[in-house]
Amino acid sequence: MFNFHKDHRALVRTAILGFVLLSTGIAIIPASQMQDVQPLPDQKPLSAAERRGLETYISEGCVACHTQQVRGIEMDKMWGDRPSIPSDYFYSKQRMGILRQSPSLLGSERTGPDLTNIGKRQPGIDWHLIHLYNPRAVVGASVMPSYPWLFEAKDETLISEDDVVVAVGKEHFNQVGKKVVATEKALDLVAYLQSLQQAEMPSASSFIPMKKKEDDAKKSTGSEGPPIDDLPDGENLYMNTCAACHQATGKGLPGAFPPLAGSSIVNDEDPETLIRIILQGYDARPDYGLMPSFAAQLNDKEITAIINHERSSWGNNAKPISVEEVTAIRELVMSEQP
């Protein structure tokens, strides 16, 4: 029999064989099975530029702080419409050439936000470029590193039509006669980030709910009588959806994103323009970046809550609007579309 105490051959062989068997069962076989998936019908393969962006994403070590997995629990709902599934990684997690393996996109730390759905949440290219050049230019409290080597300072006279100029504020870039221009690498990286959108999945599994929500719902309908308004928290929604560009202070960023504090559109007695801009997006003013459409991302209640927050904060003082007004304008907008 095996005498491990005296037979080194038996000892080492058993230990190694045991480990190989366990590893096969727990790692190799499940890993092989996990490769056996198909993409969702709506999922698009990465374009060449997006793939180059993914490579920059890996080589700069973005995965150290950003996850790309929406877990199937309620608290992760803010990062996606549904929990992530294996198919979601069909195109992105492929071996990157002979030297490098498939990228570890799921991540293990969320020092920065999850990026599964960043393409939907933050679609504007202007915002991404400023943010990459110096994150603190758009998010004051951010601890993300700046990536100035993805940009170049170009003489104003040499800037051509093809160059993408980044509207960085004076306190972050102040060289006379020069402007910050995005390099190909920065544009590819942004293209990759914009491509990060959860594909539609009609029969998606739902999140494991937390008990708290039910209790709260009971509380608000039970002891405290009928609810005054069942709108979600507007300030919270504003912080998650709008503050990255328009800032928590509502002041916007000069040259990039317009202020909401004191804005005539926000404070207008008739909220139609404001609602329309949120639903349809806005690109009428060349001095500011493009405002994307939020019709798919926010429902009428959420839009109402955000608008009421905007109309009552930072010195703004316009009367609150109702959900019905938003619903009416959404129908109008839908009917206008061909």
């Binding site: 190799i28 498939s102 799921l106």
Partner: peptide
């Protein structure tokens, strides 16, 4: 096992990771 390429695409990589 950590560096063999044959079972490391998609979430196979995550299992191995």
């Amino acid at each position: 096992i950590g560096y063999m390429p044959w079972f490391q695409n998609g979430l196979g990589e995550t299992v191995i990771q």
